[in-house]
Design a protein around this nucleic acid. Structure first.
Lengths: 207, 207, 207, 207
DNA sequence: GATGAATGAGCCTTCATTCAT
DNA sequence: TATGAATGAAGGCTCATTCAT
């Protein structure tokens, strides 16, 4: 029997719905199969277990999102370092990032609200790690003394970064429209930029 | 049989441990009863169901924490409003808050990592709501034009507040020592203070 | 709720029946519970898993049977050694053994036909091991040269012993009446006694 | 697609391995197909179900073995009867039998340890039946009075025969080397010959 | 109040078998 | 002939909750 077109898609769609409605633990493969007009066996042909099904839903988006982050935080010359230090990635970068999040809204909801905390933690950790590495690199690249002087450290970069992404993701989670989200994100960026200036001891006058 | 002294306490202690170790869904009342040298029935005498047991563990701390927040964000005169607007609650206030969190570290971990997202969301929502109300009131109290001018709105206050508390709670969650936590919290407060100044359009020179 | 009298007994009885009818692998705990007018949970209160249920049915009889064997093969003086060497345990001993087997006929059937081969093998191994040890000890005790001369070895004792018990257990397995079984066992004992005389090189004239 | 050379062989080889490793019930057709680099369908083209696949593995050897037994227990004249009565098939016969067993060791292991007891029982029953028929015929052919006098009966012949073959097959099962097996089989034959002499009341002096 | 046996729904998973391609 | 997706029954097992004692 050939694999019927669309069964996988249907399963994934119903799985997404089930996870979203009931959370990971309370999601039932029975329900997913039934809602997909399919069978439990059909799920197991595709995914070896429940965890893998969830991962299949979520992993590609995680990976792609991180990749986008890497690209947009991007180039590695001193000018960029300076900008990055100010959280001054271009508007275009944040447009791309926000668009990506909204294009994959369901998946981000899954990640942020349907996993045991470990899944969420891991996801956030990867993002923040990437962000922090970039921040630290920029600080060193611009010879800023924030770290050497003890005004901050990697731990703090982690905390601030986590706080920022929490705010960013909250936009989708709360079903804020994309237009509104752009406004709030602008505010949030200005808010955090200002915070970083203070910590990094950069005169506001520079801007 | 007489109600033995301390059974409730033992149940709660073991429940806390079980929830912490396995998460809410995977926690087993069987285990809790066994570890408490008690019985499932003994749990049901005290709490009508699993959810109530969890709530019993967590609710008092939630309520008390909110109460502390209310008190420390405090008095309702214009001077305070101004300070609050700058996120300039006194150091003493934050000492109290941080101490409370660290004194109830387990419970905060429970709240932040052992619940389905709904429990976490509700908890955070209450805190943020309280904080936002206070912020908005202060803005209005000081006739700041941030809202009327469209520089921000309640939604943004929510986002920023959520981001702040995320950072604050992360300290306990990551098992950072209290001394270290005080340092990071200082940084975080300066960071956010600066953010608010920008949003509220208050000249840095004022400080 | 107090444990109701007889539930365990009913479960065990129905389990015995189910294992006997379908073999270990194909026995269904669902069926057992249903036939016992009980529930799956009731089984799991008593036995942690399917294997333990089977073991509960079978282990006491195994242990007791081995014990009887030890006792009846018994005393440890030279006279006994000589007799044992001739497989000449008293008629009384074999009466006891045969009676025990017939009194626990179901269990022996379970052991001999309802287990994966490992269970059967282990059971037979214990019996044979005990028998062989006894045989070897007797040979050495009487200074018989069967082993030293290379006429036999422990391996052979194992083979012969296994063959004997195979014959013995076949009686119950084939639903031979106890009276008939006594006759066949007499024959089997004479048969094996003669075999041992030959191997041990003892003149028939001695008897 | 053309039937690829050797697929059947590969399937049988992998099936043998799977049954040997996991027992009949726990063997998985999925695994067999996978290990054979083939498909479940390919198995079902050749064998209508799991049982038939097992039978295909085992039946030819069973049949051939019985046939060899028939041939070696052999000719039907009075002289042979006498010999047979003494379990005195020639050494050559037993060489052939033992060789056959060792040449098909895997299959005998399959038969003796990987089947539900029914398969084993049926196999053993056929062998023993053939053997018993031969024994009885010989007794009658030589006018021996063992049966008529009540010293034995067909049932006993069955028991003794079963015991013998149990010993014989134990050699392969326990992975005894063929050389060692020949030695043990010699002993076993002498052991059983002596047993039969006693039962049949034949003077040792006759030999 | 305390116990823990009883329940049965429900879980995830595996399987032999079927059959469209 | 060959494939492997599809099926759905059945498996062992766990659980929160109830309730007789």
């Amino acid at each position: 029997m050939k694999r019927v077109e669309g069964v996988t898609e249907k399963i994934l769609a119903c799985a997404k719905q089930e996870f979203l409605s009931n959370g990971y633990e309370n999601a039932s493969l029975r329900n997913i199969a039934k809602n997909a007009d399919s069978s439990k066996g059909a799920i197991y042909i595709r995914y070896p277990d429940k965890a893998s099904l969830f991962k299949a839903l979520v992993q590609p988006t995680i990976d792609e999102f991180i990749e986008i982050l890497v690209i947009e935080q991007g180039g590695y010359n001193v000018d960029d370092d300076m900008k990055r230090l100010m959280s001054d990635y271009s508007d275009k970068s944040f447009d791309i990032i926000l668009n990506y999040i909204y294009d994959h809204a369901d998946i981000f909801k899954l990640l942020l609200s349907c996993t045991d905390s470990k899944g969420y933690t891991d996801f956030m950790h990867r993002i923040v790690k990437q962000d922090v590495e970039c921040t630290i690199r920029s600080i060193k690249g611009t010879n800023n003394d924030a770290i050497t002087s003890g005004r901050m450290d990697e731990q703090f970069a982690h905390i601030a970064s986590h706080a920022f992404y929490t705010g960013l993701f909250e936009l989708v989670l709360h079903n804020i429209s994309k237009e509104e989200a752009q406004i709030q994100l602008d505010r949030l960026r200005r808010f955090f930029k200002s915070g970083w200036q203070t910590i990094l001891n950069i005169e506001g006058g520079l801007f």
